[in-house]
Amino acid sequence: MMEQYKISDPRVLKAVSHPLRVRLLGLLRSDGPATASELGRKVGESSGSTSYHLRELFKFGFIEEDDDRRDGRERRWRARHDYTSWDAGELSATAEGREAVRIMHLRQGEFVGRVMGEFDPDGWSRDWVDVAGMSDHIVSLPPAGVREFNDRAAQLLRELAAKYAGDPEARQVSAWHGAVPRSTEEGS
Rank of each mutant, 00 (worst) to 15 (best):
50 T>G: 02
52 Y>H: 08
54 L>P: 04
57 L>F: 06
59 K>C: 13
59 K>R: 15
60 F>H: 04
63 I>L: 02
64 E>C: 08
66 D>P: 02
68 D>W: 11
70 R>V: 04
71 D>Q: 09
71 D>Y: 07
73 R>F: 12
78 R>K: 15
78 R>S: 06
79 A>P: 04
80 R>Q: 01
82 D>E: 01
82 D>Y: 02
86 W>N: 01
87 D>L: 07
87 D>E: 13
88 A>R: 07
89 G>S: 12
90 E>W: 02
90 E>I: 07
90 E>T: 13
91 L>Q: 10
93 A>F: 05
95 A>G: 14
95 A>P: 08
97 G>Y: 01
97 G>R: 00
98 R>Q: 09
101 V>C: 02
101 V>T: 08
103 I>G: 03
104 M>Y: 07
106 L>F: 08
107 R>A: 14
108 Q>W: 04
111 F>T: 13
113 G>A: 10
115 V>L: 05
116 M>H: 03
116 M>E: 05
118 E>K: 01
120 D>K: 11
120 D>P: 04
123 G>I: 11
125 S>Q: 09
126 R>M: 10
126 R>S: 11
127 D>S: 15
128 W>P: 06
130 D>R: 12
130 D>M: 13
131 V>G: 14
133 G>L: 07
134 M>N: 10
135 S>C: 15
135 S>D: 14
136 D>V: 15
140 S>F: 01
142 P>N: 10
144 A>I: 14
144 A>H: 06
145 G>Y: 06
146 V>F: 08
146 V>E: 06
147 R>A: 15
